[in-house]
């Protein structure tokens, strides 16, 4: 128990240190260039295959977390560790980068004049459709989009082309209908 408490103290300390840091003192740039982040992700994909003969998918980790909570006999516990790892990795990058900034998120939707409850409902519905679709297709952006395509799977290439194409069309419709795109935003260089 003390081990966990010590870890928690360390995280709290790191967070408080960040708050007192001068801006511009970040160890990580605001956004890692894609030509660095891309190959790093590719090496992680290869690494997990070499160590465990397993793909670096994400939706499967959600599924295994559900199975673990349900105590299913065919649950795979290491995927739950992996699930938690994604959160911890994101936390570490945030601490080293811009800092953990407690906020609502989805600034673009707020900027377009949407109320907080409306944004919540849109995000929830979008995520439900996304989760359902990922289970129907058998994977998501990382599972099919990177790991499946890297295995030269025809199914993954077609799934990836389908969800990419759909996402572009839906984004176009969203932008034209709601004015989401009229707002000039930071992010994404």
């Amino acid at each position: 128990m003390t081990r966990y408490r010590r870890g928690l103290t360390a995280i709290t300390l790191a967070l408080s240190v960040r708050r007192n840091k001068d801006p511009g003192m970040e160890l990580l740039p605001d956004q890692l260039p894609w030509w660095i982040a891309g190959p790093l992700l590719g090496l992680l994909v290869v690494g997990l295959f070499v160590v465990a003969n397993q793909p670096l998918g994400a939706s499967g980790a959600y599924v295994q977390t559900i199975k673990t909570v349900r105590h299913d006999s065919d649950r795979v516990t290491w995927r739950v560790w992996y699930f938690g790892g994604i959160f911890v990795g994101g936390l570490i990058a945030s601490i080293l980068g811009p800092g953990v900034d407690i906020r609502q998120g989805y600034d673009a939707m707020s900027a377009a004049g949407w109320s907080a409850p409306a944004i919540g409902i849109v995000v929830l519905l979008g995520a439900i459709v996304m989760g359902y679709g990922a289970r129907v297709a058998g994977g998501c952006t990382s599972g099919h989009g990177i790991c499946g395509t890297a295995q030269r799977s025809p199914a993954s290439w077609v799934t990836t082309a389908t969800f990419m194409g759909t996402a572009v069309i839906v984004t176009f419709i969203l932008t034209s209908l709601t004015g989401l795109g009229d707002v000039v935003m930071g992010g994404g260089q």
Partner: peptide
């Protein structure tokens, strides 16, 4: 599944793994 996933991805503006990282970055 690809059509449904793509639509949800665009509407929610995130996918399964980045959603966890988003939460970790402090976006409630």
């Amino acid at each position: 599944g690809g059509v449904l996933f793509g639509a949800g991805w665009s509407i929610a503006g995130t996918c399964p793994a980045p959603a966890l990282a988003m939460l970790a970055s402090g976006a409630t």
